[in-house]
Design a protein around this nucleic acid. Structure first.
Length: 574
RNA sequence: CGGGGCGUAGCGCAGCCCGGUAGCGCGCCUGGUUUGGGACCAGGAUGUCGAAGGUUCGAAUCCUUUCGCCCCGACCA
């Protein structure tokens, strides 16, 4: 591609609305243009990157035995009513009507359509397993689109759907996709982690998210640097402390703590670290009033809470309910009964594993303006009714697999594999005849990659103060020839043209900057748009028979004899 | 949806409090000088001041309504 023929539109300044670096750089590099909230045009430069990502995804999906098709963006409501998602999906799903006033949706995903295809086309066990995928535009009317294409309403997703005869088959298909995803993100040159994810309420039984590690990520993942353990914060298990609970060494004491309602206040007031305090969280559930106790520096994890039987259908308790059950306002609540105030018989105490292992703790005294110090389970209050993992793990916690300690990092979810089971196939009646001529419901898996989001995530991970630094596999051009004075120097023009021709002929994805821009402008732009390899040809070097090579991450250029540059570049690209 | 903020030239912004006929930087156009790190000189073009209504002799500025956009907030590729 000759850049004089291409279309570049870069700017020095980023629009004020761009908050994160990938959004700013994509706007500055002229990769995308906003058309509305969460709706973007992909400009020529951006499309080249998108296609690179798509092609790698496509190659690996095909290599993994998945077959490509293309399902419609606009889908009739009937299928979605049949699966129940027409009612379940809420305003995130875009609904439209045609001229006959019939209902349609703009697909946020395609389980319904693919399952409809499966139930019509796949009728014998001999046809299974099968994995279909497409790369298609999605629309989700996000309550808050943001960060450019990172969370846009319209985006491009690769979604694949596997169909198997049984759970064993499904788990094999799942593993094949898991491995394919690992290869895809490795080939794309991204630093990522596959993390164990919550299967949520869809009823599936295995799920992993592929997270690109980046500080700007919206998700938090916990992983063990010394092992392959990695999980979503919601999923990472907070293991019980190894050491048994210390024996009580202090007497229970009531201390006056007027106005000290938060753990931080109390800690400062009593000059005690948060690790010595218990904090109380009050909920109402199907079982009644529940008092949850955690170490004060830990955060309650609401997904884990929901998995504790005593907290089925929980919701935060109101101030009135807290007053009624504990006899005290929030801020002074705790498990230690106080005569005339506490009502331990009506209160279910759920303690986090760490909290349950604490001795000589500080907590609310169930009396306004008072805390207790030297509190101990069993001695000063009953042992907790339930001990469970109800907190989010923190940096330095023991890894659940017993290998080292956990670290927390932020991530951007770029892929998700999900063993769905029969959630859709049962509803839509996707059945087949097995070897014994018995009708069986298919086992499904679904597997998504946010193509457009991958592009943004790659920039979050690969940039510097000058601009984007593309991983070679997804660069809009692998190599650029920066011809200095192309419009003025016959020698430069001749050598640049000939190098461009020979690299092109050998299949290198090369761009020739033949625009005759001033060197400063040219270098700044090429660095901003992040071309990983640059060959600079100028009169100055040509006098000595030399050109220069500089990788985007290099701090200085390397002089290379003109005659050797093609071979040099071939090695750099390898 | 709740809270906060913003709509002025292609982009980034000032002007608004305190009404008086719209300005700066970048970009763009013309000519010249330049040409190894976003050049310099001279000249030039560009706005229904988001929209509608109101107050006023007069509105970018004050009032009302409305639309759009951004940021913060527990369902996601």
């Amino acid at each position: 591609m000759k850049l004089s023929n291409f279309f570049l539109s870069t700017t020095k300044e980023a629009p004020a609305e761009a908050e994160i670096v990938s959004h700013q750089l994509m706007m500055r590099a002229g990769m995308i243009k906003k058309l509305g909230a969460g709706i973007y045009t992909w400009m020529p430069l951006g499309v080249r990157v998108l296609r690179k990502v798509e092609n790698i995804v496509r190659e690996e999906m095909n290599a993994a035995g998945a077959v490509e098709l293309l399902m419609p963006v606009i889908q009739p409501a009937e299928l979605w009513q049949e699966s129940g998602r027409w009612d379940k999906m809420g305003p995130e799903m875009m609904r439209i009507k045609d001229r006959h006033d019939r209902d349609f949706i703009v697909q946020p995903t395609s389980e319904e359509v693919i399952t409809d295809i499966a139930r019509q086309e796949l009728r014998s066990w001999r046809q299974l397993p099968k994995n279909f995928y497409h790369i298609q535009t999605k629309f989700r009317d996000e309550r808050r689109p943001r960060f450019g294409v990172m969370r846009s309403r319209e985006f491009i997703m690769k979604d694949a759907y596997s169909f198997d005869v049984d759970k064993d088959g499904l788990m094999k298909s799942y593993q094949i996709m898991y491995d394919a995803y690992a290869r895809i993100f490795t080939r794309l040159g991204l630093e990522f982690r596959a993390v164990n994810a919550d299967t949520g309420n869809i009823g599936g039984f295995a799920s992993h998210e592929f997270q690109v590690l980046a500080e700007s990520g919206e998700d938090v993942i916990a992983y063990a640097p010394d092992s392959d353990f990695a999980a979503n914060l919601e999923m990472a298990e907070g293991v019980a402390p190894v050491a048994p609970r210390a024996a009580a060494s202090k007497a229970l004491e009531l201390v006056h703590t007027p106005g000290q309602k938060t753990c931080e206040d109390v800690g400062t007031f009593l000059k005690l670290p948060l690790e010595r305090q218990l904090k109380a969280m009050m909920y109402m559930s199907d079982s009644g009033f529940v008092l949850c106790m955690l170490r004060a520096d830990h955060m309650v994890n609401e997904i884990k809470l929901g998995k504790v039987p005593a907290l089925a259908n929980y919701r935060p308790a109101t101030a009135e309910e807290i007053e009624a059950h504990l006899g005290v306002e929030p801020g002074y609540c705790g498990p230690v009964p106080r005569h005339g105030n506490a009502h331990p018989d009506k209160v279910i105490v759920v303690a986090d594993r760490t909290a349950a292992a604490m001795a000589d703790f500080v907590c609310g005294a169930n009396e306004s303006g008072y805390h207790v110090t030297g509190g101990n389970w069993g001695r000063d209050c009953p042992e907790p009714d339930v001990v469970a993992d109800i907190r989010s793990v923190v940096d330095g916690d023991a890894s659940p697999d017993g290998k080292g300690v956990l670290k927390l990092r932020r991530g951007i979810e770029v892929g998700h594999v999900f063993a769905l089971g029969q959630a859709y196939s049962a509803k839509l009646g996707a059945k087949f005849l097995d070897k014994d001529q018995k009708e069986q419901v298919m086992e499904m898996g679904c597997y998504g990659i946010g193509i457009t989001r991958v592009v943004a995530a790659a920039i979050e991970q690969n940039h510097d103060e000058k601009g984007i630094i593309w991983p070679q596999a997804m660069a809009p051009f692998a190599v650029v020839i920066a011809a200095l004075g192309y419009d003025r120097s016959a020698e430069v023009k001749a050598e640049a043209d000939s190098l461009y021709a020979s690299l092109s002929a050998s299949g290198v994805d090369v761009a020739l900057d033949d625009r005759g821009e001033r060197p400063g402008v040219m270098f700044a732009e090429l660095e901003l748009i992040g071309i990983p390899h640059r060959i600079t040809i100028g009169d100055r070097g040509l006098k000595e028979g030399m050109v220069e090579y500089q990788a985007r991450r290099d701090t200085a250029a390397t002089k290379v004899p003109l005659a050797e540059i093609a071979a040099f570049v071939a090695r750099a690209l390898a």
